Every structure is written in structure tokens, then in C-alpha cells.
Amino acid sequence: MFGSTSKGAHSYAKVGLETSVVAASPHKLIVMLYDGALVAVLSAQMHMKSGNIPEKGKAISKAIQIIDNGLRASLDKEVGGQIAEGLDALYEYMSARLLTANLKNDPAILEEIQGLLTELRDTWNAIGTAPAAMPGADLTSSRMPNLASA
């Protein structure tokens, strides 16, 4: 009569996410992108193990989209210099490996990418708790992608 509880919960969660994005600092947005990519990779692992090929493909595609259109797109190579260039190359590598994992149905590659994303997220979190950042150390632009479509 009033729709499913699942649909309502999904809508509520989406509003919560959108509110979090609007209120988040650029640093927190990067953490949210890492978290989103990790969730997508974990979902892909689960679907790969269960043999659900269509959902595995969707999850891997979502992870690639977050990495390419979120993390990579937010890099400011002019300000970030060699560090930003290195991150760009690493993000490109991760996207290519995810594509290979999808094509070859290789769970070891998903584990590799999960490890890289976890390490990057943990490092980014540690940077956020550092007392004072060095001038010019902001590696991301203030323009962030629309996460609602990710």
C-alpha cells in the first residue's frame, strides 16, 4: 500500500549520503570516495564468489567509475606535483587491473586492489589528523564530482 520498506530505506540512505557530501570538507570527500570504491570492490568479490556475473560486472564498473571520475578527476597536478602524478598513475593502474579482474574473473586482482585502496584511505585519514599541512600540500581540487550518480 505504501511501498516497500527497502525502497524507503534506500531513499533515506541516499538523502543521508547527499547531505554528508554537501557538508563534507574536500578531505572528507576523498575519504568517502575511497570508501565507496572499497565497498564496490568488496561487492564485486562477493558476487564473483557466488557466480553472479552481471552484479560482479556492475560492482567493478562502479569501482572504476569512482576511481576515474572521482579520485583521478580530483587530483590537482599543478599543485600536487610528483605526488599527484604518482597517484594518477596508480589510479590508472588500479582501473586497468579491475578491468582485467572482470574479464578474467580473477579474485586475486580484486584483493590486490582492495589492499591498495585500503592503504591509500588509511594514509589519507592519517594526513587528515596531522597537526598542520604543509603549504601547497592540497593535492585535490575544490571541484568534486557529483557522487549521487556514482
Rank of each mutant, 00 (worst) to 15 (best):
Y12H: 12
I30C: 05
L17Q: 01
L29M: 06
A40C: 08
S11I: 11
S6K: 15
H47S: 14
P26D: 10
M46E: 14
I30H: 05
G3V: 09
Y12S: 08
H27Y: 06
A44Q: 09
A9L: 15
L42Y: 06
K28F: 05
L29R: 10
H10D: 12
S4P: 01
S25G: 02
V39L: 15
A13C: 08
A13T: 05
S25Q: 03
S43F: 07
Y34K: 01
H27M: 13
V39I: 15
K7V: 08
S6W: 12
L42N: 14
A44Y: 04
L33D: 00
V22T: 09
H27R: 11
V39K: 11
S4E: 03
A24Q: 04
G36W: 01
Y12I: 12
S25D: 04
L38W: 07
H27C: 04
S25E: 07
A37H: 03
L29P: 05
G8V: 07
K28H: 08
A23V: 01
K14E: 13
L17R: 01
V41Q: 00
M32D: 00
G3I: 10
V15L: 09
M32Q: 03
M32V: 02
T19M: 07
H10N: 11
V39S: 14
T5N: 14
T5D: 15
L17P: 00
L42G: 13
L33Q: 00
L42M: 14
P26Q: 11
A13L: 11
L17M: 06
A9V: 14
Q45V: 04
A40P: 08
A23Q: 07
A37K: 03
L29I: 05
M46Y: 11
T5F: 14
H47Y: 10
D35H: 05
P26H: 05
G8C: 12
S25H: 03
E18N: 08
T19G: 03
K28C: 06
S6H: 13
K14N: 13
S6R: 15
